[in-house]
Computed example of a mutant assay.
Amino acid sequence: MSDAIRAETVTMTGHGGDEVEAYLARPLDGGPRGSVVVIHHMPGYDAATKEMVRRFAVHGYAALCPNLYTREAPGASPDDAAAFVRANGGVPDERVVGDVEGAANYLKALEGANGKVGVIGHCSGGRHTFLAACSLQVDAAVDCYGAFIVEEPPPGIPPSMQPILHLAPQLSCPLLGLFGADDKYPGPEQVALLAAELDKAGKTHEFHSYEGAGHAFFAVDRPAYRPEAAVDGWAKIFDFFGRHLSN
């Protein structure tokens, strides 16, 4: 645990050389330390996601969350930016990958970085985590109830959110998956299909499902919050990153 951290908005280089706003938090002690790219959910680059970034810094990691909606809605509130992006079809997968790669490169260049980078995301960010871990070379990935990796999206979801199960053979790192047994996106059947595909591809993964928990059980500001599942989930996240991102 780090007594002192620094958190701030920075500018990083993302997909296609674009300047992308991002939120950075890191311990003020020396290092060396692992790094984490936090991928925000579909509601956007919001206060809850930034709190997660700071939480990783308190636990000794440099963490960075790129604003995937920077280009479409610079300066807009998270709600307005998310609504605009959803109405315009979502964020293309190749651009997400490019922005995550830019975030990883930014973290690796920080003083005290040990060169190891993990990726984490919730909901659409969980899907994007799986996408990034299958498209880039990273050291660990955490998928928190990532929707639409396996299943087709329902009406109203941006068309960019298409299934990506076929990417499983390309997974570049160990994967931790945390799911709610009462969730529908993904439901238990979809989680089982993802696990089976990873088994088939010989990929290292560790999945946990929580009874009585649905979608967004980590979200402390929502009725879906389930304290027991969230507390255990956080413990598993820090154990997993501790094993894969340490020196």
Rank of each mutant, 00 (worst) to 15 (best):
A141F: 00
A103D: 06
A47W: 07
G202W: 02
D3Y: 04
V58R: 15
G115K: 10
V142H: 09
V231T: 15
Y61S: 03
G90R: 05
T49S: 14
V10Q: 03
M161Q: 15
G102F: 11
P174G: 06
A103I: 07
G156C: 08
V119R: 09
G115E: 12
N247I: 06
L194I: 09
E151S: 05
A22M: 11
V38K: 09
G180C: 04
S35C: 15
P78R: 13
H244D: 08
W234A: 09
E197Y: 00
L198K: 02
L28G: 00
N67F: 00
G187L: 00
A216N: 13
V96K: 10
A81F: 05
G16M: 08
D79T: 15
A192W: 01
D29W: 06
Y23D: 05
M1E: 09
E101C: 07
G115H: 03
G31T: 06
R55C: 08
G17N: 07
M161D: 14
G214V: 13
K200G: 13
F240S: 11
K203H: 13
K116V: 03
S209Q: 13
N247Y: 05
F241C: 06
V142M: 02
G89L: 05
A229M: 05
P227Q: 07
A132N: 05
T49A: 13
K184F: 09
A230F: 10
P43V: 02
P188A: 11
H122R: 12
Y23F: 15
F179V: 06
T11W: 07
A82K: 05
A224V: 02
A109P: 06
F218V: 07
C123W: 06
T13V: 11
G180W: 06
C65N: 07
A7G: 07
L28D: 14
R127E: 10
H59D: 11
V20Y: 10
I149K: 08
C123G: 15
G112W: 04
D232P: 01
S2G: 03
E211K: 15
A224G: 04
V150H: 05
P227W: 05
Y106C: 04
A81W: 05
L24E: 01
D232H: 14
L110C: 02
T70E: 14
V231N: 14
L175N: 03
A62P: 12
A216I: 10
G44L: 05
P74E: 04
A229W: 02
M12Q: 07
K50R: 15
P169T: 06
T70M: 04
R6D: 14
G89W: 01
G60V: 02
R226A: 07
V117Y: 01
T11P: 09
V142Q: 01
H41G: 15
P169I: 02
I149C: 08
E72F: 11
F148A: 09
P74M: 02
D143L: 06
V10R: 01
D79L: 12
K203I: 12
F218Y: 12
L110Q: 12
L107G: 06
V117T: 10
M42Q: 11
D239S: 12
S172D: 01
Y210D: 00
A82E: 00
H215C: 01
D79E: 14
T49Y: 03
K203P: 01
H244A: 10
N105K: 15
S172E: 10
D80I: 06
G102P: 12
E152Y: 02
D239H: 11
Y69L: 10
D199I: 10
R86L: 01
V10E: 08
P155R: 13
S124L: 14
A195E: 14
M161F: 07
L131R: 03
P223D: 12
A76W: 04
